[in-house]
Amino acid sequence: MAFSVFIDGAAGTTGLEIAERLAGRTEFELVILDEERRKDDTARAEALNQADFVILCLPDDAAKAAVAMIRNDRTRMIDASSAHRVAPGWTYGFPEVIGRQAVASARFVSNPGCYPTGFIALTAPLVRAGLLPADWPYVCHAVSGYSGGGKALIARFEADRDIAFRAYGLALGHKHVPEMQAHVGLAHAPLFAPAVVPAHRGMLVEVPLHLSAMPGAGTPDTLRAALAEFYAGSPVVKVEADAPDELLLRVSMEPTDTLTLRVLGAADGSQARLVALLDNLGKGASGAAVQNLNLMAGLDETAGLRL
Rank of each mutant, 00 (worst) to 15 (best):
A2D: 12
S4Q: 07
G9R: 02
G9V: 02
A10C: 13
R21D: 04
A23D: 15
A23S: 15
A23E: 15
A23G: 12
R25Y: 00
R25Q: 13
L30C: 05
L33I: 12
L33N: 07
D34F: 10
D34H: 06
D34P: 03
K39R: 13
R44A: 09
A47G: 07
D52H: 12
L56Q: 04
L58R: 09
P59E: 04
V67G: 02
V67C: 06
A68Y: 10
I70E: 11
R71Q: 13
N72L: 01
I78A: 01
S81K: 11
S81G: 09
S82E: 09
A83R: 14
H84T: 12
V86T: 15
P88Y: 01
P88N: 03
W90G: 06
Y92N: 00
P95D: 12
V97Q: 14
I98Q: 15
I98R: 15
S105R: 15
A106K: 05
F108R: 13
N111L: 13
C114R: 06
P116W: 02
F119A: 14
L122D: 04
P125R: 06
P133M: 15
V143N: 13
V143W: 10
S144W: 00
G148E: 03
K151G: 14
E158L: 00
A171H: 09
G173T: 11
E179S: 12
Q181P: 08
Q181W: 02
H183M: 03
L186W: 04
P190L: 00
L191Q: 14
F192I: 10
A195L: 05
V197E: 07
H200C: 00
V207D: 00
P215M: 02
G216F: 00
T222M: 11
L223W: 05
A226P: 02
A228H: 06
A228S: 10
A232Q: 12
G233V: 06
G233N: 05
S234T: 06
V236T: 11
V237H: 09
V239A: 07
V239C: 06
V239L: 07
A243V: 13
L247M: 14
L249P: 06
R250T: 12
R250K: 14
V251N: 05
V251T: 08
M253G: 11
D257A: 04
A266D: 12
A272K: 07
R273V: 14
V275W: 04
V275D: 05
D279F: 02
G282A: 11
K283R: 13
K283F: 14
A285V: 08
A285E: 02
A288E: 13
Q291P: 00
L295N: 01
D300M: 02
G304I: 01
R306K: 09
L307E: 02
